[in-house]
Design a protein around this nucleic acid. Structure first.
Length: 347
DNA sequence: AACACGGGGAC
DNA sequence: GTCCCAGTGTT
């Protein structure tokens, strides 16, 4: 059996020299991490790239420096600030979690206690416990799965391989500096042990890597084939009246749940009528790709003369397109190009 | 175990 | 175009 204890030692030494500098990260030896900032960053980073999260994290921590500030915020403002980041259940759970933690007084310090909170699952609970509370929990995200699958040349395909990868990752986790070890594994996966072309030549643990020895690092982890995305169709209505536009808050459950939106049909065959009787005109088509389907959305506009049956008319002076999710921003750009297109700098 | 759930960056 | 990202909750 290989001596696994050298791996965390080598990885931590590499991390001390090459750790990424990130807004939510406290450099090793510079005091404890703030559980609120660790939690907020981890939730934002769920299935989301570091580059996409940075500006959102800065904005949130500027608006709400503590979990109590966030707990006291209005739902609509938090949803508006989350707009564009995707997976909106995270924002709804973020609000619920902040209020639960604020009511408790502070974040729980154990993985079990953390995992009982909304939006905190196996990954995030382990990450907060290890990074903020220095507990020897094993943190397994997509990076760690890839690093471990290669290190041990695991041939089982994901997601079936997940339990095996968790067991192997656990066998590596040191009792000292577990939080730094977790972040070191993720940094390694994000920078050197990358999905397509791993830079094995400069990897701090390449001597221990079974996949590299076999020349199959780039082929791991194996993945189950994914299903094709069907194309669906829908219609969105953007109605104007005076200097106002018709918007609604989408239902809490389902796609884009809880976000600001223009009234629309469903896109799974359900046929809702327009939100108001009017002379609706199709002005174009927006194509948007979601996680499990693509959508062709017909954008219709009209001047409203009768009271709408759903939604509410919001003054354009108060309407911020940045509060819309990506799909609805696209529709808005089509409907009001003069207000959203960057001025032509060529002329 | 399978599915629902966004958006964008890298190739 | 494809892949996949510091995953979670529901069925």
């Amino acid at each position: 059996m290989r001596d696994l204890t050298v791996i965390p030692t080598q990885l931590l030494a590499w991390y001390d020299r090459h750790a990424r500098v990130l807004p939510w990260r406290v450099p090793a030896g510079h005091g404890p991490a703030d559980p609120y900032r660790v939690w907020l960053s981890e939730v934002m980073l769920q299935q989301t790239t570091v580059a996409a999260v940075k500006s959102y994290f800065q904005r949130f921590t500027s608006l709400w420096p503590t979990v109590h500030d966030l707990a006291a915020a209005e739902d609509a403002q938090v949803m508006a600030e989350w707009a564009g980041l995707g997976y909106y259940a995270r924002a709804r759970n973020l609000i619920a979690c902040a209020r639960a933690v604020s009511a408790m007084g502070a974040f729980p310090t154990t993985r079990e206690g953390l995992a009982a909170l909304p939006g905190i699952g196996p990954y995030t609970s382990a990450a907060i416990a290890a990074i903020a509370f220095d507990q020897p929990e094993t943190v397994v995200d997509g990076n760690v799965e890839r690093v471990v699958a290669r290190l041990f040349a695991v041939q089982t395909a994901l997601p079936a391989a997940k339990p095996e990868l968790v067991t192997l990752a656990t066998s590596l986790t040191p009792s000292q500096r577990p939080g730094d070890f977790a972040q070191a594994m993720m940094d390694l996966g994000a920078t050197i042990c990358s999905p397509r072309n791993p830079a094995c030549g400069i990897c701090p643990i390449n001597d221990d890597c079974a996949a590299r020895a076999q020349g199959i690092a780039a082929d791991l982890p194996r993945k189950a084939p994914k299903k094709p995305k069907p194309l669906r169709h829908g219609t969105v209505w953007i109605g104007f009246a005076d200097e106002r536009v018709l918007v609604e808050t989408r239902p809490e459950k389902g796609l884009l749940g809880g976000t600001l939106a223009f009234p629309s049909t469903g896109w799974d065959g359900s046929a809702l009528p327009p939100p108001a009787p009017a002379d609706w005109q199709a002005i174009g088509l927006v194509r948007h790709v979601f996680t499990h389907f693509a959508l062709d959305l017909t954008v219709m506009t009209a001047w409203l003369t009768a009271a709408p049956e759903r939604g509410s008319l919001t003054p354009l002076s108060k309407f911020r397109p940045t509060a819309l999710p990506g799909l609805m921003r696209k529709a808005w750009v089509l409907a009001r190009p003069a207000t959203t297109v960057v001025p032509d700098q060529q002329r």
